[in-house]
């Protein structure tokens, strides 16, 4: 194995916009690749989370039981956990369902808004938790990168800082809803 930084990205309840923004780093990805190996991500093929990675970027809020279990596993196998984007940082749009009960949500999605096969799925689709919450309400988070999505420049800055062993100072670089 190389001695490059081990990097992972995780996608919870989000729109994948943060991952798109990550890809928008464009040709600078090549520079990053000199410093880090991407071991696990929706963008690569590995199906299991590696034993230990140095940095994990998490996109999305913790909404379902699957998210809840996954984030704890990820936390256990990550040195520096980064909440990437507003959904991970604030629950953002996924959190907009919180004032409503889960049952009402299912009713709306699978009965009122469905024309065929009106039924609430019990298999395959992971059950929703009572509240959709930011990642740091479930596990400890080391770096917060707000933004919807954070710009490619912001993500590039965060990664460069982390890969060079510094903690990124985001003051003046990004904001909620950016």
């Amino acid at each position: 194995m190389s001695n490059k930084t081990k990097l992972a990205t995780v996608w919870l309840d989000g729109c994948s916009g943060c991952h798109m923004s990550f890809l928008d780093i464009d040709e600078r990805l090549v520079d990053l690749a000199q410093l880090a190996d991407l071991l696990y991500s929706p963008l690569v093929d590995h199906k299991t989370f590696p034993d230990m990675v140095d940095v994990t970027l998490v996109e999305g809020a913790v909404s379902s039981e699957e998210d809840y279990e996954k984030i704890q596993k990820v936390r256990a196998h990550t040195k520096i956990l980064v909440s990437l984007g507003d959904c991970a940082v604030t629950a953002n749009v996924p959190g907009m369902r919180n004032p409503f009960k889960v049952a009402a949500l299912y009713e709306r999605a699978y009965h009122e808004n469905a024309q065929l096969n009106q039924q609430i799925p019990v298999q395959v689709i992971p059950p929703l938790r009572e509240m959709s919450v930011p990642v740091h309400q479930v596990v400890a988070v080391d770096v917060f990168v707000p933004g919807c999505p954070p710009s490619a420049d912001t993500i590039f800055f965060v990664l460069t800082e982390l890969l060079n062993g510094r903690k990124p100072d985001l003051t003046g670089r990004t904001r909620f809803g950016a």
């Binding site: 704890q72 936390r75 256990a76 520096i80 740091h136 596990v139 080391d142």
Partner: peptide, 10 residues
């Protein structure tokens, strides 16, 4: 604790 790794939360 919910997390097994003792990282310092910011």
């Amino acid at each position: 604790r919910v997390t097994a790794v003792a990282t310092t939360p910011e």
